[in-house]
Amino acid sequence: MRALATLKAQVRLSVTTSLQYRADFLVDAAVELFWIAAAIYPLVVVFDRTDSLGGWSFDAALIVAGIFAILQGVMEGLISPSLTGLVEQVRKGTFDFVLVKPVDSQLFVSFSKVQPWRCINALVGLGLIVRSLHRIGYVPSAYDLFATTVALTASVAFLYAFWLVAASTAFYVIRIDNITYLFSSVLDAARWPRSVFRGVMRLVFTFVIPLALMTSYPAEALLGRLDGTTLAASAAAGVLALVVSRLLWKRAVNHYASASS
């Protein structure tokens, strides 16, 4: 109960804070739109030369790109600002103040800097998806939408778990302000449909870093191509990722030795 109240207070506080920086929002929005366009351009060039990317049409590939934009929006708005803040807190030693608070440190850190305005990508992604569905001429059923929601939630869980683990490395390696860049560049591989990954890469991006599935499964679910077993497996994997990242976080916090003095 108390956790919920803390969460509510934190979200309210960070929304108020980010409202103070409205001009930032405009710059962010412009940059994000630009990135989405830049990321789609290679697809345009590729499909200029071929009709199918391992069975995915241009419009289906755009749905994957749309899901990617949604995930990126969730990450930029809800996940990464807080955890980037964590890296700084650990370096400066102000993480002390988190530890002395009578709330769960992971909960506190994870939602300390929510910036809903930065979710702009998600809107663009949604637009991209609707447009592509329209062009394909497929109307998702209620079940498809449900499956998409489950698959997307699992993907967000994965994303959060990865971020938490990556940010936890700050306790071991002090100066990693650039972790965000690493993160977004690894995530870049999720822009394309999973048929792009073959051989060893397919194994790595399915089982080690399930990037291939994070965007392709929700897209397939939306097109009514994802079977129930796969859906259940990805939901289970999402839960597992959360549990594992929680354990790793606890280990990392024990390693914290403060700074200053």
């Binding site: 590729v46 860049y181 560049s185």
Partner: peptide, 16 residues
């Protein structure tokens, strides 16, 4: 490590 883009792009182009 944040320069893995050539790898990612390589995968895309090979599939294409």
């Amino acid at each position: 490590l944040s320069t893995t883009m050539p790898l990612v792009m390589f995968l895309l182009w090979s599939a294409a």
